[in-house]
């Protein structure tokens, strides 16, 4: 491969009972770029994303084969500490998932769990992350109110900030703008683009235009199969596989 990577997926297959959700997927994810995984709904995008931080483990009847390496460590090795893997990856869900606590505690949740108990230090982290998310001015007077009282757009930015507070290496976005209005979506997209200077970003989406706006690297998933992947401009301009072409022109959705 001609780009640096520290997240490698090798021959990953996932099945739920009899249903094969992912078939032999191999993908190297480029560092400090936005990799967008596109594909029609039900193609296994979310499954792929959740296999990366082992959230699939808790699903009943799931079988996972293959390897995923983060920094050359196989995350499915039984000796690996799963909280450690998850801490490395911040997840942004489809709908903003604010924890049932205050704005402040939402951001402080991760750091607290990982051992930061000093109140001053936590305050610094909270302010830093909220400022970085451009939320500080909007919420600085409401830090101790329930986070559920923020607008949906603010909630999603809060969730992103919360994910960054545990200092991850990789950011996973599972259709992160699907519940947002167009303007909030733009803010979140903009934020993701800013973040790629420091983080490796993987975003799953079924909105093609979003892919065009933010993707550096593109992977097309169809019926659990990784059909095609490559630099975004290349794939968008000259898709090699007929299925990718059909999807990009809107024939399959």
């Amino acid at each position: 491969m001609d780009f640096p990577t520290h997240l490698r997926i090798q021959n990953l297959s996932v099945s739920y009972g009899d249903h094969l959700a992912l078939k032999d997927v191999s993908l190297d994810v480029p560092d400090k770029k936005i990799t967008v995984i596109i594909g029609p709904s039900g193609c296994g995008k979310t499954t792929l994303l959740k296999s990366l931080n082992r959230l699939l483990d808790s699903v009943d009847g799931v079988k996972i084969r293959g390897n995923i390496f983060v920094d050359d460590e196989d995350i499915y090795d039984p000796r690996v500490e799963v909280t450690h893997i998850r801490k490395k990856m911040g997840l942004l869900s489809q709908k903003p998932q604010v924890l049932p606590m205050s704005v402040f505690d939402n951001i402080a949740y991760g750091p607290k769990i990982h051992g930061t108990s000093d109140r001053k230090k936590l305050s610094r982290i909270v302010e830093r992350e909220l400022r970085a998310a451009g939320l500080w001015d909007e919420v600085k007077d409401r830090l101790h109110e329930p986070a559920s009282q923020l607008s949906v757009g603010q909630q999603q930015r809060l969730c992103l900030a919360r994910g960054l507070a545990v200092e991850p290496e990789i950011i996973l976005g599972d259709e992160p703008t699907s519940a947002l209005d167009p303007q909030s979506s733009r803010i979140v997209e903009q934020r993701l683009i800013e973040l790629k200077s420091d983080y490796t970003v993987i975003v799953v989406t079924h909105i093609l235009r979003q892919g065009r706006r933010i993707a550096d690297y593109l992977a097309f998933l169809y019926l659990g199969e990784l059909v095609e992947h490559g630099p975004a401009e290349e794939v968008f301009a000259h898709p090699k596989d007929p299925r990718t072409r059909a999807y990009l022109t809107g024939e399959i959705s």
Partner: peptide
Amino acid sequence: ELRETSLSLGATKWETVKYV
């Protein structure tokens, strides 16, 4: 999803139960 959110921040299952 809310449970996954807590887990993906590196919380253990018990912490997720307790706090979320």
